[in-house]
Nucleic acid binder design. Structure first.
Length: 418
RNA sequence: GUGGGCGUAGUGUAGUUGGUUAACACGUCAGGUUGUGGCCCUGAAGAUCGCGGGUUCAAGUCCCGUCGCUCACCCCA
């Protein structure tokens, strides 16, 4: 057993796995650019209060999952548990409200949450996210949702369901919460312990409970969408019209509330068909109060986050094929000490010419070297033995077709880059 | 934080009712005569059987603890 292992809930991504990551990252970047989004990166740690204020200090993410630590200057810092609050912080810090609104941003960044790991859930996970800050129009909601949907589409994922809901704003939420509380008031003894706590602390989450005892109550609960104020109702119906225009199928889910406090109006979540390995691969919503909460002027915003690891799990599950990546082009073999330097120089020249190449090392039999070349999946072997050395040539062997011929050393590069 | 399953070489596994030097496959490295791969053959390296304690003449095999992995709940990506 090795003395050290990757920390619990983290994982190494070895070369064999990288093609999956590349494929997802590349597709994400391509979609984001097409929608006019610019890339942003923020630090891996932030002032801890950014999240307690932004995400909400009653949320699980902050309350029990955040990695908090003090640095040597006694600053309370936190490893980033989610991407939206940091992006909003950057928006404020750099005066991005002076740019044309909305400011459209995307990122691929690791997030950290101290959960108990399980299938599709890690303590370090990576999210592709996008945020559009500074415009509250429903078309932006549709744009964000469409971007997420197109990503999945282009990756070839099928069987996904887009759950959609509106949870109102400062105007209509208090009234709805009253209605909800009134509905639950006489049902508290039929409901689980957690829900009794939620009744006071965060009643919206009552709708989200999965405990069997609570399902009857949830089924009969009033839907927020029936209690939206005019502005929120109009916003929601516009959004639905845009999604229909774009041909994006959505499923209205009045029980969808999400676990972060900053959401207003639009919330959405994308769920794969097969259960197990986590029920959601991406989600997001509007956060019209967040920038203000962080000290800025009232500024609307909306965004999504989607988990790279979970996307890859689903790609594999659906047996989706990857575009094949180019392998090693040349393995440089030699025989005899006299050829060593020439072989090294050839390899070096290949690298500079943009040809992938690997040089054998030490003194080993030709057989051993070619075995090595084969194991590495090289397309060609460039062999420099005494004969080749004498005539300043290399024996170029095609490891796939099997042919071999002698080419002057000076022509090798041209031959291989052609 | 709660519960279930598991923990033997890099990987995947076998290890009989506890009993001599822990096995197999793949992988790695080397060799199979005179400079040449993929198949085949041979050999080598590689495991203090997660860790600690206990029972026993004797434990990979039984008991306890602990750590880790894993699945589910919670929550989320």
């Amino acid at each position: 057993m090795p003395e050290y292992k990757a920390p619990r809930g983290t994982q190494d991504v070895l070369p064999d796995e990288q093609p999956w990551w590349d494929h997802v990252r590349n597709t994400a970047e391509s979609v984001a650019r097409r929608f006019g989004y610019g890339q942003i990166e923020t630090p891996i740690f932030e002032d801890a209060t950014l999240f307690t204020r932004g995400v909400g200090d009653t949320t699980d993410i902050v309350q029990k999952e955040m990695y908090v630590f003090e640095d040597r200057g006694e600053q309370k810092l936190a490893l980033r548990p989610e991407g939206t609050a940091p992006v909003c912080r950057a928006y404020l810090e750099h005066g991005l409200h002076n740019q044309p609104q909305p400011v459209r941003l995307w990122y691929v960044m690791p997030n950290f949450r101290y959960d108990r790991p399980q299938a599709g859930r890690y303590r370090e996970h990576h999210q592709f996210g996008a945020e559009a800050i500074g415009d509250g129009d429903a078309s932006i909601d549709a744009e964000i949702i469409e971007m997420l949907w197109r990503l999945y589409e282009e990756l070839g994922l099928t069987g996904l369901t887009l759950h959609l809901n509106s949870i109102g704003d400062r105007n209509c939420r208090p009234h709805y919460l009253e209605v909800l509380r009134a509905y639950y008031a006489d049902k508290l003894d039929t409901v689980c312990d957690d829900c009794r706590g939620r009744y006071d602390r965060n009643p919206l989450r009552l709708l989200d409970c999965k405990d069997a005892r609570c399902q009857a109550a949830i089924a009969g609960a009033p839907a927020f969408t029936d209690y939206l104020c005019d502005a929120c109702g109009e916003h929601f119906s516009q959004l639905k019209a845009y999604l229909e225009a774009a041909g994006i199928p959505y499923h209205l889910n009045p029980r969808l509330v999400r676990g972060l406090d900053y959401y207003t109006r639009t919330v959405f979540e994308v769920q794969p068909l097969e259960e197990g390995g986590q029920s959601s691969i991406g989600g997001g919503g509007r956060y019209d109060g967040l920038i203000e909460e962080l000290g800025g002027k009232p500024t609307p915003g909306i965004g999504f986050g989607t988990g790279i690891e979970r996307i890859i799990i689903n790609l594999k599950r659906q047996e989706i094929l990857l575009p094949d990546a180019p392998g090693l082009a040349v393995y440089v073999a030699y025989q005899g000490a006299a050829a060593r330097t020439v072989a090294y120089k050839l390899t070096s020249d290949l690298h500079r010419a943009g040809v992938s190449a690997v040089l054998t090392s030490g003194e080993r039999s030709l057989k051993s070297q070619l075995r090595h070349a084969d194991a590495l999946g090289a397309r060609y072997a460039a062999i420099i033995g005494e004969r080749e050395l004498a005539e300043s040539a290399v024996a170029l062997k095609d490891l796939r077709e099997g042919g071999q011929d002698t080419v002057p050393l000076a022509d090798v590069i041209a031959r291989l880059s052609a």
